[in-house]
Structures are given as structure tokens and as C-alpha cells.
Computed example of a mutant assay.
Amino acid sequence: MSRPRAVLMMLGLILGGCADPGRHADELAQPAHLKRELITTDGFVLTGFSRRASPGLPLTLYIEGDGHAWQTRNQPSVDPTPHKALGLALAASDPAANVAYVARPCQFTPMQQNSRCSAAYWTDKRYAEDVVAAMNQAVTHYASAGQPVHLVGYSGGGALAVLIAARRHDVASIRTVAGNLDHAEVNRLHGVSPMPESLNAMDVARQVASIPQIHFSGADDRVVPPSIAQRFVKASGTRCAATYRVPGMAHESDWQQRWPELLGRIPICTKGP
């Protein structure tokens, strides 16, 4: 590695608190009646949690962030499973009848079940074509035919929510929380190398322009600053996309505590003048 990738480390290190990430995930999921399962896709075996109580109602599906991608500033971790699964914490706080959560490739799932897992998939290729395709298959696994899907993504999961929405016709809304909606610009801001093997949500802003969406940013976020969501909304050229800056919140703040309040902000398409 030619130089330390500070921003990628910051995006990937959600540190603190838990010696056993799998147990921590179960402790989040069980009180919310979210059941763990493995999802086999063409590229990866993914770990998901879900509560599907009323098939006639929409599904809200959460996508995890980049997780514990870096062990040090220069050394990728051997396991990207987040020490604190903030995406799962958001899902556990959602009272909707139908809630699902999908971890990113190589998170939570035993490595021996994912022969393709390598550090590239939690560093440079975290938003690669095969990653997006696998995550999209996981959405299809949970969504019944004709069921509206609300996508929610935390951090890098926000990028995947947008990239997945651009491929589907059943997405009713998009919400991102501290979403990395333009990794090229984020890396430029931090003076680190680009990720040419990863797709960029910014490149499909126009493709999702007709989907109601709201992008939440922490006012104190120095990892993915609010300007990234603002750039994305501007690029979409639509009145269906909005940003909301949340005071007092940084990238890894307690978004779970704020989530019930933020869920009340419904994405809509506003009318022109």
C-alpha cells in the first residue's frame, strides 16, 4: 500500500465494546424478534436477520456499513465483521411489521463458507459489481413479489442501497444514514487513493431520481461530511431527494437512539413551483 488510507480505515473501523461480534448481533436482534439466517447468492453466502409478520405490508430492508475493514492504518483486518453493527441496530429499532437486515459479504458468515472472501472485498472492492449483485439477490430473497421495498443503508451500506435501487422496480423509498454516496469524492477529500474496482452511487443518481429518498448526515461527521449527501442530491436533479443534517451526530454516533425520531421523516417527491 503506497500510503495510509485513513478514510477507508475510518469508514471500516466501527470499534468498541464487544469481544464477540456475533453474540452482540444476536443481543441486538433477539429483543426485536429478528431471526438470523444464511442467504446463498451467486457470489457469497450472506448473513441476514428478519421479522416478517405481515406479508401484505411493505418490507424495510437495512444494509450494514463497511464494518471492521482495517486492523491498523496500513493493515486490513482478517475479518470485516463490525464490532458494533450499527445497521443492525437501526433495524432493531424499527417497529415496522416487516423488517430485514443484510450484512455485507464476509461479515458474520464463517469464512469457510465464503471461499471468495479476501481483504479486497472489504477494502478496494467493497462496492464491486459482484458485491452489488449478491446484495441485490439478498433483497430479492426477502421481498415477496409485488411487495414495496424501503431500502435503508448505513455508511457504505447507503452506497449499496442506491446501487441496488438502480437495478430494481420495487423500491418505494431510499434512506441513507451517514451514507458514502460518492466514494471518489470522499477519498479525494481525505487525500487517499481511489477505488476503481468499486461502483459509485453518485454515478446512478439520475437513475434513482424518481424514487423518494432522504439522506441523513451527522452535522459533526468528519468521515463522510454532509456535503457528500448534498452533492448526491444535486446530481440527481430531482425533487424526490432531500438531505437532513442531524445536529450533534458524527459518523459513528448513537444513530440507533435517534432512529425512531428520524424514521418519522418520510421521503416524498415534492411538486415544482
Rank of each mutant, 00 (worst) to 15 (best):
L189S: 12
P21K: 07
P260L: 05
R239E: 08
P80Y: 00
T72G: 01
P82F: 06
K84F: 10
E37W: 05
N136G: 14
L90M: 04
R116I: 02
S115A: 13
T176D: 06
N74F: 10
A128L: 02
P194G: 12
R126D: 03
G16A: 06
R168Y: 10
A69T: 07
A133P: 00
G56W: 08
E64S: 14
L8D: 13
V7W: 06
W259E: 00
A165Y: 07
A229V: 08
R51W: 02
H190A: 15
S210I: 05
P212N: 08
H215W: 11
V192H: 09
A229R: 03
L262T: 08
L13G: 10
F232V: 07
V223G: 09
A145K: 13
A165L: 09
G248H: 05
G48S: 03
G179Y: 03
A178H: 06
A201M: 08
A53V: 14
Y121G: 03
Y121A: 01
Y127N: 13
R3W: 06
G264W: 01
Q207P: 01
G87R: 09
C106D: 01
E64W: 04
I211L: 04
T47K: 02
T47D: 00
N200I: 12
G67F: 04
N200D: 15
R265I: 12
R52M: 15
G248Y: 07
H215L: 14
H190Q: 02
P76R: 03
Q213H: 07
D130H: 14
C240A: 08
R188D: 05
C18I: 09
G56A: 11
V131Y: 00
A91D: 02
L61M: 12
M135E: 15
A242M: 12
Q207W: 02
R231C: 08
V186E: 03
Q113A: 13
I211D: 05
F49K: 07
T123W: 03
Y121L: 02
M249I: 14
D182R: 12
R126G: 08
V132I: 15
T238F: 08
I14K: 04
E37Y: 06
Q71K: 15
C269R: 12
V152Q: 03
T40W: 08
V131A: 00
A120M: 07
T40K: 15
L28M: 10
N200F: 08
Q30H: 12
G158F: 09
E261P: 00
R175D: 01
